[in-house]
Simulated scan of single mutants.
Amino acid sequence: MIVTGYAQDLELATQLADTADAITTDRFRALDLAVSRKPDRTPVTDADTAVEDALRAVLADRRPGDRIAGEERGGTTGDGRTWVIDPIDGTKNFLRGVPAWATLIALVDGGVPVVGMVSAPLLGRRWWAATGSGAWCRDTAGTRRISVSAVGDLADAYLSTTHLGSWTEHHSREAYLALTDACWENRAFGDFWSHCLVAEGAIDIAAEAIVNPWDVAAVQVLVTEAGGRFGDLNGGDRFDGGSALSTNGLLHDAALDVLRH
């Protein structure tokens, strides 16, 4: 594996993911799982808060000078270094017993994600990347470097999103359906998984009408290090624009053009 200036941070992100996996796998399908709702009506479980608290404790010890921003305990990114944490991305899946969920950990430096770690223990998969080191995946077949697809035409593209209803509320359902019509195939793998599959080259486009920074900071560096392009639906190459579009790069402008109409 290529070593960069963020090698030690990537090693720490691996340890954080191990800590998170130990908590989430223990609480998955637990009969006493406590579930509540946040003000935006999204669910949160005791596992979400336990993971974030555990990761914050490790970071306070190992990186006391860094900021922390998490889904459950708050915080913002700044000009320096900030660890951005989504303790369980796919909480609705987690609480319903669906194994498609993950812990997302990113290091943002100067407003740009430079380390990304996505760990989905019940899928048996983990993805990671750091600026200049490429994108990687580990599964039952072992560890391998990953890269985006070479599909160059929307008519041949495989597209994924999350909840279709979010397009009605936050962007344009008609625009998304126009993109599905322009593509060869579509699914709704949802959340982190769609973007990770783009990085792997398994699918070609992942689009979400609404996201928070902690939902996508880790996948931005993963997709870009895999040779793709990540940004928001307005065309900005950023993780904090409130929406998300991952592509193999070749299809990015074409997908944006459809979604803007």
Results as ranks from 00 to 15, higher is better:
Ala226Asp: 12
Arg81Val: 02
Leu159Tyr: 11
Asn212Glu: 08
Thr14Glu: 12
Cys196Trp: 04
Thr140His: 12
Trp193Met: 04
Tyr6Leu: 01
Pro99Val: 00
Leu95Cys: 10
Val112Ser: 14
Ile146Gly: 10
Asn248His: 05
Arg260Trp: 07
Ala188Gly: 07
Ser36Arg: 15
Gly110Lys: 12
Ser119Asn: 11
Leu123Ser: 05
Ala188Val: 05
Arg67Leu: 11
Trp128Met: 07
Ala150Tyr: 12
Ala102Ile: 03
Gly152Ala: 14
Arg260Asp: 07
Thr247Lys: 10
Gly152Asp: 15
Ala202Cys: 08
Pro64Gln: 13
Gln15Tyr: 02
Ser172Asn: 15
Leu123Val: 03
Arg37Gln: 09
Thr19Arg: 04
Ala207Phe: 01
Ala150Pro: 10
Leu12Phe: 03
Gly111Phe: 06
Ala199Asn: 03
Ala129Cys: 13
Ala157Lys: 06
Trp136Lys: 13
Asp237Ile: 08
Gly249Leu: 01
Trp101Pro: 01
Arg41Ser: 15
Leu245Tyr: 09
Met1Pro: 04
Leu256Asn: 00
Leu59Cys: 14
Ala209Glu: 03
Leu31Lys: 06
Ala217Ser: 06
Asn212Lys: 06
Pro113Ile: 05
Trp214Gln: 07
Ala178Phe: 14
Arg125Asn: 09
Thr45Asp: 15
Cys196Asn: 05
Trp214Pro: 00
Val151Thr: 15
His163Asp: 11
Ala175Trp: 11
Asn234Gln: 14
Ala30Ile: 13
Phe239Leu: 05
Val221Trp: 11
Asp26Phe: 09
Pro87Met: 10
Gly152Cys: 13
Thr19Tyr: 02
Gly236Asp: 14
Asp257Gly: 00
Thr162Ile: 11
Leu55Tyr: 11
Asp204Arg: 00
Glu225Tyr: 15
Ser194Leu: 03
Leu55Val: 01
His261Met: 08
Cys196Leu: 02
Val198Gly: 04
Thr49His: 09
Leu12Gly: 07
Ala34Gln: 09
Leu197Thr: 03
Ile210Thr: 07
Arg125Ile: 05
Gln15Arg: 00
Val211Tyr: 05
Asp139Ser: 09
Ile88Phe: 12
Ala20Asn: 05
Arg27Gly: 02
Arg138Gln: 13
Gly132Trp: 06
Asp156Tyr: 07
Gly75Ala: 13
Ser36Asp: 12
Gly75Phe: 13
Arg41Gln: 12
Gly231Ala: 10
Asp46Cys: 06
Thr82Lys: 13
Ala202Leu: 06
Gly228Cys: 03
Ala7Arg: 06
Cys183Pro: 12
Arg145Ile: 09
Gly249Gln: 03
Ala50Glu: 07
